[in-house]
Write a protein that binds this DNA or RNA. Sequence first.
DNA 1: ACATTAATCGAACGTTCGTTTAGGCTTCGG
DNA 2: CCGAAGCCTAAACGAACGTTCGATTAATGT
Lengths: 202, 202
Amino acid sequence: MSDESRPRGDKSSTKSRILAAAITLFADQGVAATGVRAIAAAADVHPSLIIHYFGTKDGLRVACDKHVAAFVREHKQQVMRSAGRFDPAALRDLQDGPPLLRYLARTLADGSPHTAALVDEMVNDAVGYLAEGVASGLVRETDYPYERAALLAIWSLGALALHEHVQRLLGVDLTNLDGVAAMESTYGRAASELLGNGIYRT
Amino acid sequence: MSDESRPRGDKSSTKSRILAAAITLFADQGVAATGVRAIAAAADVHPSLIIHYFGTKDGLRVACDKHVAAFVREHKQQVMRSAGRFDPAALRDLQDGPPLLRYLARTLADGSPHTAALVDEMVNDAVGYLAEGVASGLVRETDYPYERAALLAIWSLGALALHEHVQRLLGVDLTNLDGVAAMESTYGRAASELLGNGIYRT
DNA sequence: ACATTAATCGAACGTTCGTTTAGGCTTCGG
DNA sequence: CCGAAGCCTAAACGAACGTTCGATTAATGT
């Protein structure tokens, strides 16, 4: 490999290689079940280097949280599939790299402060989106706009958290899908019908 | 001769005390983050006794899965709150004892075979319930009854899995609620509106 | 009364955990 | 050239992990 611009190996990449490996393993097995040694092996570095860079294992977890949160903040609408508009191209970044959405799904259920803040932001954004929809006549009015937005967000993110079950039941992988495929999928079809008409006959 | 020898101490059942402690701690901290020693201390028994009864820690986890699954099977409709009918009295058992719903919420996201089977059952039951609703004219028809049932189940269970966020956003604790309170809650109100009318203006 | 069996404890096993400490290399400014 | 600085490794620490083994106690069958 050619590396001459940076000191040892790849400099800027080592830290992010650790981060990527950590996100992958945390997403796959959970944080508590993943040891620093396994992460180090996956990143091809020495375990103590992780401590050197991130201080502690929990520091690494926080760094992962922040990294994923930063990414999701840039692609909020795409993550909230069932209630938003789609920009398929923006999700291309998800196809490669560490499984950020699977990591998010993990931490949604595990509960981290950063994820909680992220969810709060998404709900507030959803309130705005839905208000725009109401103003343009596309979305029904409601007496409880905040609660409606919160519930839509919960349902979207809950489905993401249970993506294994969604995959098994509906054959759709919510963590590995771009927006177009989501709308054309079984999940998207059923969601459109439910949110379009409701279930109860009027 | 079949069942019991109740030799030592008081112990209505030491085994079930261990099970209850394990469910509580697993629900609170996750399986991987909970040690057998902590469970043993909570159940006030010696750690090796857990191994003696359940063979291995994973055997204990499986026993917890089965125990929770058995309980949920008896109260299926109550767990699937947003899509079903309610029998408030049947949930009284949840107020005391180990936090079975919190444990279920954990394993829904963590993924265990028993939980997956349980979810599959609930979806199939929901198909039946919804078909009855259609027959009685209460529920809209659909071209995709299975997908609709699956998605409703996913949303209900997903909200349960994200109960911490639901609590924070809507002030409702889905793991500690009986059916009536669920319908009167912010969550129930928003869910009724969404599933009743949909969001999109027709 | 005695042998049997189940229930429970106490102590230790070997492993893995997260972390610490010390020190090699490499690169580079003076 | 040299010493400082940064990247990274090697070896080891104490604690906690899941588990094993053997002994002790109490109920049961005969």
